[in-house]
């Protein structure tokens, strides 16, 4: 029995979906746990459950804004995610060892990207690179082709530098969640193998939650 995790789910008050609803659907789909990462705020009413992790997804306009927000949330939440897409924000995120995940580095519409230098930083700092399935599910034609192309490029670099990678749904509604097997099939669209996709849903998210890469590299978490 594998333990699947979805580390990028948005819940009430940012969206209409409550944590209980999301969790029950995720459990039904076969997930062991989900992480609630609302933009710029931590969910106040936290339900005691070992299947829900509370994190934050930092959305910053500039690098200084990002640094300020990382300082604000660093060490207080179990998961520090950065809303990627902008090249400068991507760079600042992978250079910062306190960041756990860089969410959708190619943006929600395939506008940004990562290069070999940034992926190497991510591998050194233990910042997990997120492949966001929501952008594949919700876009069509040119936009989706661009996103898939970007993901293919990033995947090549991630393989080369052995950076941690994860698959997430970035669900805003309960209907946005997809079962693990569906996520694996979607990951195959940009060339990820079944084994890689499985570990990106099981081992690596578990390691991110346990801060495995941070411990290995003696990164100081304040």
């Amino acid at each position: 029995m594998l333990n699947y995790f979805d580390l990028n789910v948005h819940a009430y008050p940012e969206t209409d979906a409550s944590v209980e609803e999301l969790l029950s659907v995720a459990k039904r789909y076969g997930y062991t746990g989900i992480a609630i990462t609302n933009h710029d705020e931590v969910v106040q009413e936290q339900k005691e459950s070992n299947a829900v992790f509370y994190g934050v997804e930092i959305k910053a306009n500039s690098v200084s804004d990002l640094k300020r927000k990382i300082k604000l949330h660093g060490g207080k939440v179990s998961l520090l995610t950065v809303h990627g897409g902008n090249d400068k924000i991507n760079r600042a995120a992978v250079e910062n060892p306190r960041v756990d995940i860089l969410a959708h580095p190619c943006g929600e519409r395939g506008e940004g990207g990562l290069n070999h230098v940034l992926v190497r930083y991510a591998a050194e700092n233990g910042v997990a690179i997120d492949f966001n399935m929501n952008s594949i599910i919700h876009s069509r034609r040119g936009e989706r082709a661009r996103t898939l192309g970007k993901m293919r490029e990033i995947l090549k670099l991630v393989r080369k530098y052995n950076a941690p990678m994860i698959l997430t749904s970035q669900a805003h509604f309960i209907y946005d969640l997809r079962a693990p097997r569906e996520m694996i099939a979607l990951a195959a669209l940009f060339g990820m193998s079944k084994e890689e996709a499985t570990s990106a849903l099981c081992d690596i998210p578990r390691g991110v939650l346990d801060k495995r890469w941070k411990k290995e590299r003696d990164v100081e978490i304040l």
Partner: peptide, 23 residues
């Protein structure tokens, strides 16, 4: 099967009603 599974997973709405499909 995998291709069809992926295309099922890509369905997000049917006539403006949100859906999620799993095999």
């Amino acid at each position: 099967v995998d291709e069809v599974r992926a295309s099922l997973a890509c369905i997000h709405s049917v006539n403006d009603a949100q859906v999620g499909i799993r095999v």
